[in-house]
Design a protein around this nucleic acid. Structure first.
Lengths: 208, 208, 208, 208
DNA sequence: GATGAATGAGCGTTCATTCAT
DNA sequence: TATGAATGAACGCTCATTCAT
């Protein structure tokens, strides 16, 4: 009976998470407005009323789902960045591989981007948060490596340090591609990443 | 009375277009599901019934709005590409400027991308059409210039010709940035374009 | 050109009839409430506006359609009744055959009954009219023959003269059967008529 | 509180029935298409939403209302038929009285017939069901008695056993009369029944 | 006479939200 | 905690009716 109790307690504690997981799937499938809380409830194996026990409104379910699903890239990134070593070129390459892979493989990240593009105007806080906790840290890490590389004479001085966004733009394209075409026009992430790195590092032009 | 007649006739002919223009604004503001046809009607200064005189369903309004708003980049691109001359490097730069500007300045293009990212799964035909009439033509133009440049020995052989998407990815980032942050974190398109071109042409790395 | 003019004039004169014919078909198919004037118009090869040129409202279209479709049985019946001769038994048989056939074969009659059963409460005048111009005359004719037959000693005195409805009830059953089951459970009208006549004339019982 | 609970539980269980009862009244008054679910709801003292909690569509409300209202004549008839005894003539009379009374007194039966005549084409299953559960059983009972009577030499062989419908046709006339004229031209059921029985048993004709 | 664009009231249906249990 | 019956506002869509041409 103690075991039973514990199981129940554990389940109780996990309820909100189960609901948010279900919400993620449903919102991802239909978008914010077209998702019915009833379907979220069904997917989480609870009833609508239960959702309202844990969350005040549909907006809150969405909001907290996003926060829950998009948390924790920041520390991951920082910690990875801390391990970088060797030439700045190697560091930049490694960072790009890391970020591209994250973006390409992390469905929650991808769908969060979809949510924010679709309904960001209704949830401006989430957009800001996404910038602060994903976009900016990534840009900052790129900038730091690039600036250090320039200082070390390894990279030529260029706009790349002011527009670090450029360096992550192929990764974003990968994401948008996936959001638009799903599995229909899949791009080989590894090869695409290599190509992007190659291009950004060495350029197209031979006339230098 | 002749003037009256003409005005009426002209208005009649323009009704569907006025409705689609209004639909664009409302769908852009709220997304597909959260847009009320009543609001579209009000913005177009007609009543709900009138919309249904011209369009069968809300879906059709959306679909035809997208088609109407995203038409005609293809010929524009082809015609521009036909005027390219000079070194392949110059041609590629010119093409990038042309495409980046289009993407950056054309709100219908931007919002169409938002629509497709948000509700593409409900309108797969529109997604395919967008690929066929925008993405692929752009990619093809880039590829042609790059391959010619490589053949002429002006560009080094690289993955750039197999992953031409990379070349347009900064432009896509510009779009997504705008969709996400609106005017809050605006990027200077001209400078960003220059930077992107510079980077893609010459690369970051100095070690060559 | 004179011919053209005449044709046009004729068509013009026939327009309302064409509309009422079309209305009959549509109302028969869907009932009053579920019929769209647009469909009536289409079937009559005119536009909705034209219907309103000839009829004030949908109710009037229905009303006039019923009057048009159910007219003229009265004189037909009277004139037929005038031709009856021979024994009263033969006259009654002939009258039953005449009435049964009319009911069985006349789709407008059948559908009118459907209309009145379905929407009679909305059109009480039509119901009264149907009674006055169909039900009562039929009953009266039966009654006259029966009473004359009784007076002549050919028929036994019975309730049949007060409840003449009974004599026409098999015909009504035929109608209802058709309205309910369409062609699914068709009854052979001729044989059924004979059987009904036989039964009503001679009875089931042998113990007399 | 226990009383409260019970009352609530009972109400909950009765809700669908209350709705169907209300639906019966409204559909009977206006027909299927012209009935507003809002009025059904009001009559049942609930809101529109509640109806949709119990029934999927307006069609389902109608369908289930018919099934609920027209159930259970079959067993009643069988059980009554089991009690018949005495001469076949007496049995047939008794059966006719039983069926005629049922038809005359049972408003749900009458209105069901109206529904099926009016909207049967939209609900073919209901029409079939009505045939299987009302028309055929009645016909079969009549046929069995008549055939037994013929076998016993009490009835003369006639078409009455192949067209048993004739025997129930006066009852159907009674129904149609009521559907058409309501209380305006009421027929005295008892006397009409007697007259019908008399006529069908003995016939009009004296010339035998 | 005839058209057909336009209206607007109305209805079926949905769904976020509430609340008694 | 959790349920699920109940609500009611809202929205897509329909269609009888009008009216300028």
């Amino acid at each position: 009976m103690n075991a039973e109790l514990k199981k129940r307690a554990r389940r109780k504690a996990e309820r909100p998470i189960e609901i948010l997981d279900a919400a993620f799937e449903e919102f991802a499938r239909n978008g914010y407005a077209a998702t019915r809380l009833e379907d979220v409830a069904a997917r989480a194996s609870v009833t609508k009323g239960t959702i309202y026990f844990y969350f005040e409104t549909k907006e809150r379910v969405f909001d907290e789902m996003i926060r829950y699903k998009s948390q924790a890239f920041f520390p991951e990134l920082e910690s990875y960045a801390g391990t970088l070593e060797g030439s700045y070129s190697a560091r930049l390459r490694a960072l790009m591989v890391f970020v591209y892979r994250k973006i390409a493989e992390d469905r929650p990240f991808r769908e969060t981007l979809r949510f924010l593009i679709a309904d960001g105007s209704r949830f401006p806080d989430l957009v800001d948060r996404h910038y602060d906790e994903f976009m900016r840290p990534v840009i900052d890490q790129f900038r730091m490596v690039i600036e250090a590389g320039v200082a070390a004479g390894e990279f030529r001085p260029s706009q790349a340090s002011t527009f670090t966004e450029i360096v992550m733009s192929p990764a974003l394209l990968l994401t948008v591609w996936s959001l638009l075409f799903g599995t229909r026009r899949q791009i080989d992430v590894a090869v695409f990443t290599d190509a992007s790195i190659d291009l950004l590092m060495r350029g197209i032009d031979t006339s230098r």
